[in-house]
Computed example of a mutant assay.
Amino acid sequence: MPLLPEDLFHRPIPLVPHFSPRPWGGERLKSALGKRPPPELGRVGESWELSDHPDGPSFVGGDSPAAGMRFGDLARAHPREMIGAEWAPERYPILVKCIDAAERLSVQVHPSDEWCRRTGHPDRGKSECWYVLHADPGAQVQLGFRAKVDPEAVRSAIAEGRLSDLLAFFPISAGDFITIPPGTVHAMLEGTMVCEIQQSSNTTFRLFDWGREPRRELHIEQALEVANLDPECTPPIRHVGGVTRAGDDAPSRLVTLLRGEHFGVTLFDLIPGGSVGQADVAGPRGSVISVVHGSGILCGRDWEQPLKLGDTLFLPAAMRSPGLEADPQSGIRLVVTECVEG
């Protein structure tokens, strides 16, 4: 591994995503976010912006001396500078994606870490959350059930093609924040694009795939084993509104969206034309910033990093809190993710 300069860890680290083709994928990752997946992949539904998962790692980008390295390899080679620890885990625990659903995803559910340990499943459990980047007029999300059901009722509904009669659907719009704990039966529906923050896991159990052709494997029994069938346990959708000032004298706004067992998520707003000398986006264990609205410039003592919608960067633990300037027309909104696992 080449010797890397110390100042590499005093500035943001740009990332090159892994692109994942999906039968329900669309064109918005390219048209709205400026992503450039290889044409031979066909319909791309996901860009794994920050990933240390073996199914799709992301890489260091830009003109960094570490360009071309896997993000996880850099974290393990320089744990103190990257994540503020003496050592880095075999797999960085967080995965950040952008997802474009031109068609509806399957009705699915993810297991917990406890279930994976108990059953010897090789991957981790999956807790996730979504910040909605775009929603077509009338767009919805499927979350949980309308009423409490038992496994046999779900099996019968799947066999008869009427599972949707049991499911709960909710309207969504850009700016909504949706928390999906393990065991939550859910489906992202057509006309939706999100920034997803999740545990580093690729385990999904499909209950129902809407009659899609060609048919994909379902995992009904595994799904029912891990699913929570009580609608009282479905978390509410939170709408955080547009980019606004925090008060008459404050151009920025910091909102805690989630403080979970695995990661914390906050939202940082800066009004059009606003600037702050120290944006509260860096953390002692490193942080991931995702630009979910607008554009701007992140700046340090001897560097500037332009930011645009769809960008994802890692801020190393060794980096000081940067300054931030917002575009005079759009302002800027960042979703900031920090790992909180021990």
Rank of each mutant, 00 (worst) to 15 (best):
Q140K: 15
L270Q: 10
Y92L: 15
M1R: 14
I83A: 03
H293Y: 07
T266H: 05
A139E: 05
T244K: 12
T266L: 02
S295I: 02
S330T: 15
P272W: 04
F59R: 14
C233D: 13
E40W: 11
Q305K: 12
P251Y: 11
A187H: 06
G273W: 07
Q142W: 01
H239K: 01
R70I: 03
A66P: 02
E341A: 04
D209S: 02
Q329W: 08
S31G: 02
K30P: 00
G331W: 10
R104Q: 12
G294M: 03
P328L: 09
F9E: 06
E6R: 14
R155W: 00
L307T: 01
T119D: 00
F170E: 15
H18Q: 08
I297T: 15
D150F: 03
F205D: 06
G264E: 15
G138K: 09
A139N: 03
L163C: 03
D100S: 03
E6S: 14
T179K: 09
P21S: 11
G191H: 07
V335G: 01
H262M: 00
H110I: 02
P111T: 01
P23R: 12
G84L: 09
V185A: 00
V44Q: 11
R91N: 00
D136T: 11
F19A: 06
Q199V: 05
L324M: 10
P284Q: 06
L3S: 13
A246E: 12
L166C: 04
Q305E: 15
W48P: 01
A157T: 01
T244M: 08
L29K: 05
S321H: 13
V336M: 01
R104A: 15
Y131F: 15
G161M: 08
R146E: 12
S164G: 05
G296H: 13
V154N: 08
F169A: 12
D311L: 00
T203I: 03
A153L: 07
R259Q: 13
G26W: 09
D123K: 02
D302V: 09
G331E: 06
T204C: 09
D280R: 14
S112K: 05
G56E: 03
F177S: 02
F263C: 08
Q199C: 07
F268W: 12
Q278L: 11
F59A: 11
L3K: 13
G25D: 08
S164P: 09
R70H: 08
R43C: 07
P182C: 05
L270I: 09
T184I: 12
H134S: 14
P54R: 11
V288C: 13
R259E: 14
R259P: 00
P182Y: 10
R301K: 14
C116L: 03
G34W: 11
I237N: 04
S64W: 06
E232L: 12
P14Y: 11
V141R: 01
G25M: 09
R146D: 02
A187E: 03
I172C: 02
S64M: 11
D302A: 14
P2S: 13
T179W: 08
E152I: 01
E103T: 03
A174F: 01
G283N: 13
T204Q: 10
D176H: 13
S51F: 02
G211C: 08
R320M: 10
E86G: 15
L298W: 05
S58Y: 06
W210D: 01
E221W: 08
G300A: 08
D123S: 05
R118L: 12
E196P: 05
A102Q: 15
S173H: 13
V96G: 02
V276C: 04
R238V: 14
R118D: 14
L167Q: 05
F145G: 04
S47N: 01
D100C: 03
